[in-house]
Amino acid sequence: MASVKLTTSDDKEYTLDRELIFQSNLIKNMVTDLDVFDAPIPLPNVTSSTLDIVIKYLKIHKDDPPPPDKPIEKAVDDMIDEDKELMKLEFNIMADVILAANYLDIPGLLDIGCRTVAWHIKQCKDYHEIREKFNIPKELWRSEEEIAEMKKELNGILG
């Protein structure tokens, strides 16, 4: 079994089976184009902790058939239980995983990440809750200076 070496941004080295890592289209294309197996491939955007989660996913979906070209099914909970357990993460880590999946070009993992985020959005009741959960800063429709001016004008009118 030929193996592929990867180095993360933390300078940690991983040696993985070819069949396992070839689920990501980026590395597959890189290896097949360059024909280099010994030299480690650097991944500057991916940390070791996120790569662990990605490798867990790859081990679960080792024997899957290639995905067919069909339109997107909109059921949010249409996932395997193992994937559900895998994606029980904090949002910060989940965002990193999604970004890594986007970078490594793993369509299955990206799909699952998007589905979990959508599921979390579905659980929220208000937009306040969504802001708290996903760390979105509160935006004002007008800037604070404008609001202060308006308040001054209102006070002048009201006396």
Binding site: I72, K74, D111, C114, A118, W119, K122, D126, Y127
Partner: peptide, 14 residues
């Protein structure tokens, strides 16, 4: 692609 999976009632809150 995240918003594709969100149902339309939650899109309005988004």
């Amino acid at each position: 692609s995240i918003l594709l999976f969100v149902p339309d009632t939650d899109l309005r809150t988004m």
